[in-house]
Design a binder for these strands. Structure first.
Length: 413
DNA sequence: TCTGGGGTCCTAGGACCC
DNA sequence: TCTGGGGTCCTAGGACCC
């Protein structure tokens, strides 16, 4: 690892929307206010967001609907299925508001953003600044957020968690002073630290390390030898030494995936082919929206992971030159499917990942590539994407992508 | 009967080259 | 021919994140 082993002079604020998807639903439908709300991944799927009222009723994150539907019925929980376009739109609004509070912003996920505050002159009261951020987002977008402020990203995460759990703080927590940091670390279970997952937490607990405070005081060499450099980096962050910089110029995404769990088991190759070519088409569409082209395609299939005789396999292939042309990508995806499909199994899940991405405008023309052909492909794809956006019902798809249900079919040779 | 859907980063091992 | 150390690239798989 290479970084300055000196105390950080940076100031990170982590702004995180509370119960984001559930709160978005309340913005869309104000009658949901003060009622228990749960958002499901899909009809009959698992809980992916819960309002505080729903949490209090015992609905757990990622819990399948069938396990708590009796609770929902008895207490009148409003159960909705995810509306991702709505969440993306509101996320964009939140990020725009946050921009006004710092020129240094890293959009970390759909509902979270880090802000760099050390370059802003004249903030005397960081907690007061945090409250201004909260009020602005609530006023502009109607979403409640929590703000955590500290010297490293990992500590800002911890501060944010504290802001959410300690009601007296009213949604803003600053962990700038060493004493505040130390007492927060001592009451934080090791598995709650950002970057320490289930596996690492289990290992640490076996060794008697139960709190963030315990972990902070472990010997560096011991951590590197027994855990990993990733854990060591987290420990430095807990000590106030910043190892994770603000990433305010996001690079090109490394990969784009479309994967789905089937509503029911699928056994025949034709059924999976249809699904896989559809996923490849959606992935290609997402990629074109970012102006990117892919150099590699991966296809995977699995049977139900909760059933005996689990089977999962994947195959990848290069595609040269890189492209975002749907027919080429679906054709390759279907070919790869042939390599991993085994007859007679009950498949539950499949997916397509496009990676080795690059910006289309930066990809050099191949020596013998037909420039006219490339321009023609791009133009066709642009028309397809426009039509799909306009009608949103995926009216345009390619032969093979969906069999027998075509409205408008584009074939190619 | 009923269990998201995306992403990133790190490591280990093999192939290949000098 | 034998011997060997390193570097790089690629891939698969694990762990973690939201």
């Amino acid at each position: 690892m290479s970084f300055d082993p000196v105390p950080s002079t940076k100031i990170f604020a982590l702004v995180d929307c509370n119960n984001f998807f559930a709160s978005c639903e309340r913005v869309a439908d104000p009658s949901l206010k003060d009622k228990p709300v749960v958002v499901l991944s899909h009809v009959g799927g698992i809980a992916i967001a819960r309002s505080n009222e729903a949490k209090a009723l015992g609905v757990k994150m990622a819990q399948p609907f069938f396990q708590w539907q009796h609770v929902a019925k008895r207490h009148g929980i409003k159960v909705l299925t995810a509306n991702f376009p709505l969440y993306a739109e509101l996320s964009h609004c939140v990020m725009e508001t946050l921009q006004q509070f710092s020129p240094d912003q890293e959009v970390y996920s759909i509902d979270e953003s880090f802000l760099g505050l050390e370059t802003i002159a004249g903030i005397k009261d960081l907690v007061g600044y945090g409250h201004k951020i909260r009020e602005a987002v609530l006023k502009d977008v109607g979403l409640p957020v929590s703000v955590g402020i500290a010297r490293t990203k990992t500590l800002a995460k911890l501060a944010n968690r504290t802001a959410k759990t300690a009601a007296a703080l009213k949604g803003v927590c600053s962990l700038m002073g060493p004493k505040d940091v130390e007492s927060a670390l001592q009451i934080t279970p090791v598995g709650e630290i950002w970057g320490i997952g289930r596996r690492t937490a289990e290992e640490l607990l076996k060794k008697g390390i139960t709190t963030a405070g315990d972990l902070k005081h472990m010997d560096d060499r011991w951590i590197k030898k027994n855990m990993s450099v990733v854990t060591l980096r987290t420990v430095f962050e807990l000590r106030g030494i910043s190892c994770l910089a603000l990433d305010d110029v996001p690079s090109v995404q490394a990969s784009i995936s479309v994967t789905r769990t089937f509503g029911h088991e699928v056994r025949d190759l034709a059924g999976i082919k249809e699904a896989v070519s559809g996923y490849a088409a959606r992935a290609a569409e997402k990629m074109r929206a970012d102006g990117q082209v892919a150099g590699c395609v991966n296809v995977f299939v699995t049977t139900g992971p909760f059933k005996p005789n689990y089977y999962g396999n994947s195959a990848s292939s290069r595609i040269d030159p890189r492209t975002s042309y749907t027919p080429a990508l679906t054709r390759l995806a279907v070919k790869l499917l042939g390599q991993v499909y085994q007859p007679g199994l009950a498949y539950k899940r499949a997916g397509v990942t496009l990676y080795d991405l690059a910006l289309e405008k930066e990809v050099p023309m191949e020596l013998f590539e037909d420039e006219g052909k490339r321009a023609k492909s791009s133009k066709l794809m642009a028309v397809v994407d426009q039509l799909n956006e306009k009608f949103t019902d995926d009216v345009v798809f390619f032969a093979g992508e969906r069999q027998g249900k075509s409205k408008i079919m584009v074939t190619h040779t």
